[in-house]
Design a protein around this nucleic acid. Structure first.
Length: 520
DNA sequence: GGACGGTGAAACTTCAGGTTGCCTC
DNA sequence: GAAGTTTCACCGTCC
């Protein structure tokens, strides 16, 4: 239902006016924008003009300081969010650390945070309704065609967040912001009065089809071309397009590829997955990626293997996209890096004139980012150098781990056992973002990259050193609870009450006195 | 006169998001 | 294509 009402024009900015009005009514709002930096900038703009209720001030400061403490060293993004949260405003996008997302979501549900400026993430998956939804951007950049209007379905998804029946809202309001009169007309006709788009089957997309064809054969659901075809005839794709001839042609080509890649065998009409094919299917890998990984791994015996070898190998897969973009001024530097790592690269460099070259450069930059991470570069520097935000780092690391695990599994089947250990080491280093020298210490529970580094720099380099270390010294480095836990993990228990912390006369300093060892 | 901070125009840069595996060194 | 960010020139203020 469309509704007309006036909102006080206190500022030049429409979003700001609507937010001010929402707060005056003691309600909350979600603002949807098209990019991460827009979400941050809009939140900042609103927070500069908003006055916080005295009763909320203290709680907001607490949340703000929690936001700041999520990482060991807060990044600019953390500081920006913390400042906004102090004013009861927040931004939300995939670049946020998951703990920060949770803080924002929970405190919005509590009613403490009044406005969230978000990218479309918030409209999907997360149940976070608000009295008002403000859709600021209805256009989004999409590749070579420039700015495009978003689908009606997506618009409806945004609007669906309006209204909180749990909080006795009788209705919710969704407000679009139009820049021009013609935009206004378009919004009313296309979005408000228009019909949502038809839902299209994604089956015709080759990576998806490839994966399903292999999985049908691997699970022995279909063992002949006819069985495969009769399966696909019953899918939504067939119902929608009816062009089975085209689908048949694509499937035939996929079967040829799978056979050539040794994922299936064909005797007369009978299709069977090989051991390798079955594993590829279990790992949910696109067979194309799996074949690429196998080719790279087989190349390893002629190369000088280093962590960069594997990092670049996985960075060049479709799964890890979008890769980090290479700026014009970085070209020379990246090319230098290729020369530097030449002998260890498992994925060969395409010619400069090939269309893949651009992606190859990106894969090198992405691998460099991973390498910096495992060399303990902190997140503020990663944000500065690579423009990658903490939340995005986590997402990339998770993908990298899956691809490396898959590579390990493939190594087992193609008898490259020598590589498994190396990949495993790399996975632990990626998980913690730590240099190789910290690996022994990382085996302990409650010890991550920060604590391990602290121990290592204080000459406690492995489990034996920890065993020999004085509990007092360990407590100074790790704190009491962690020190006790670490010792306990090595079978050394201490009577807790006998470790006393004596306040030093000098302010703020603590020193430990006696300790008693129960057993070792 | 020089250091410093604030301001605004111009140039430059960048553009949403997410599931899958296994259990272990 | 448009919004956000960075850069840089310019100006006023203070010491």
């Amino acid at each position: 239902m469309q509704k007309t009402f006036k909102i006080m024009q206190l500022y030049e900015n429409a979003v700001l006016n609507i937010c001010a009005d929402t707060l005056k009514r003691n309600k909350q709002a979600l603002v949807f924008v098209s990019t991460k930096s827009s979400a941050e900038a809009e939140a900042e703009r609103i927070s500069r003009k908003i006055r916080v209720k005295d009763s909320d001030k203290r709680s907001l400061e607490e949340v703000s300081s929690k936001v700041l403490r999520v990482l060991d060293k807060p990044t600019k993004q953390c500081q920006r969010l913390a400042l906004c949260v102090k004013k009861g405003i927040a931004f939300h996008h995939a670049g946020l650390h998951s703990a920060q997302k949770e803080l924002v979501e929970n405190n919005f549900k509590r009613g403490l945070i009044k406005v969230i400026c978000a990218t479309p993430t918030l409209a999907y998956g997360i149940n976070l309704p608000a009295f008002r939804v403000i859709v600021r951007d209805l256009k989004r950049f999409s590749g070579p065609r420039g700015m495009n209007w978003i689908p009606v379905l997506e618009f409806l998804q945004f609007c669906g967040r309006a209204g909180r029946p749990d909080f006795k809202d009788k209705h919710g309001e969704a407000i679009c912001v139009a820049q021009t009169q013609s935009d206004k007309k378009r919004i009313i006709e296309y979005y408000i009065s228009g019909e949502p788009e038809e839902i299209l089957s994604k089956l015709a997309v080759e990576p998806v089809l490839r994966t399903y064809v292999l999985s049908l054969i691997a699970t022995e659901y279909a063992n002949t071309e006819n069985e495969l075809m009769s399966f696909f005839k019953k899918t939504f794709y067939a119902y929608q397009f009816k062009d089975m001839k085209k689908l048949e042609r694509i499937i035939k080509r996929i079967l040829n590829d799978l056979e050539e890649w040794e994922f299936i065998t064909r005797s007369t009409d009978y299709l069977e997955a090989t051991l390798l094919g079955r594993r590829v299917s279990q790992l949910y890998l696109d067979p194309y990626t799996a074949h690429y990984l196998v080719t790279c791994l087989r190349r390893a015996k002629n190369r000088i293997i280093s962590p960069f070898s594997f990092l670049q190998m996985i960075s060049n897969t479709l799964e890890l996209r979008p890769l980090l973009t290479v700026r014009a001024k970085e070209y020379d530097y990246i090319e230098e890096k290729i020369a530097e790592h030449q002998a260890s690269l498992l994925c060969l460099e395409p010619s400069m004139f090939e269309p893949e070259y651009e992606e190859y450069l990106k894969s090198i930059k992405t691998a460099m980012f991973f390498l910096d991470w495992i060399n303990e570069v902190d997140e503020e520097l990663l944000l500065e150098q690579y423009g990658i935000r903490p939340g995005e780092t986590r997402a990339k690391l998770e993908l990298a781990d899956w691809l490396l695990y898959s590579s390990q599994e493939l190594c087992k089947l193609i008898r490259l056992h020598g590589l498994i250990r190396e990949i495993n080491k790399l996975r632990v280093r990626l998980k913690y973002g730590a240099k190789e020298e910290l690996l022994p210490l990382l085996r302990l529970r409650n010890v991550g990259r920060v604590r391990a580094r602290k121990l290592y720099n204080n000459k406690i380099k492995d489990l034996d050193d920890i065993r020999k270390a004085d509990i007092t010294r360990l407590t100074q480095l790790l704190g009491r609870q962690t020190a006790l836990s670490v010792k306990k993990q090595l079978g050394q228990e201490y009577a807790e009450e006998k470790i006393r912390v004596k306040k030093s006369k000098r302010k703020g300093q603590t020193a430990l006195t006696r300790y008693d060892e129960k057993s070792s």
